[in-house]
């Protein structure tokens, strides 16, 4: 067997694993992922209203980007799933886009709500606090509801809305890992 056809040495793979673990550890150690604090589901006879308390956490890089005028966009993904043997069936899905932007002239922060409203805030914390409340923006018709459904939420940071030069690195830099994990629980609860 030719030398060049030999499998890569074990040292190479061990080194690669260590590098990956170090990278993963670094990403885990500086966690800026958004979190879903609380979810409220209220029924008013004809529909189910979904509210939630969200926690958007901005990394130093993301915070600096906002101050430099780069808008950040999140998509709150709300799904109603029916568990299956191999995969879940999505019964209902609604994506709520939220955008945070800084107005240098007015020295204010603008939040663009899923309804298309622009809300201005004097401080970044005020803007993020406003974004943290899901104000019954999701309503699900009762006809779709069954006891075996699962409600799932995820805050997905939209990297593709970043400037082009920043996009490739946002997929590699933990400072831009601003999405949350999926949070799901049975609707019967």
């Amino acid at each position: 067997m030719p030398d060049c056809a030999k499998p890569l040495s074990a040292w190479f793979w061990v080194s690669l694993l260590l590098v990956f673990l170090a990278w993963a550890g670094r990403a885990h150690g500086e966690n800026y992922q958004a979190r879903i604090i609380d979810v409220q589901a209220r029924t008013n006879g004809t529909s189910l209203s979904i509210g939630a308390s969200l926690d958007y956490r901005l990394s130093p890089t993301a915070r600096e980007a906002v101050l430099k005028g780069i808008p950040l966009t999140w998509h709150v993904d709300v799904q109603l799933r029916k568990p299956g043997l191999l995969w879940d069936t999505i019964v209902f899905r609604q994506i709520l886009p939220v955008r945070l932007k800084f107005h240098a002239l007015l020295n204010q922060y603008e939040v663009l709500t899923p309804q298309g409203q622009e809300e201005m805030f004097l401080t970044l914390n005020a803007a993020i606090h406003y974004m943290s409340s899901l104000h019954d923006w999701v309503r699900i018709d009762n006809s779709l509801l069954t006891d075996d459904l699962v409600l799932a939420l995820k805050i997905r940071f939209n990297r593709e809305k970043l400037p082009v030069p920043l996009r490739p690195f946002s997929y590699l830099d933990a400072q831009w890992f601003l999405s949350s994990d999926w949070l799901s629980w049975p609707l019967a609860n």
């Binding site: 600096e64 980007a65 101050l67 430099k68 005028g69 780069i70 107005h103 240098a104 002239l105 400037p163 082009v164 030069p165 920043l166 490739p168 690195f169």
Partner: peptide, 28 residues
């Protein structure tokens, strides 16, 4: 005029922020 100045300022700030990213991105 204010919008124009703000647009230019924001654009400049954005470019300042993306300075290294631009270099790396275009180099890549």
């Amino acid at each position: 005029l204010a919008d124009s100045i703000e647009f230019a300022f924001i654009r400049y700030q954005e470019m300042t922020f993306l300075r290294n990213s631009l270099k790396t991105s275009f180099s890549l």
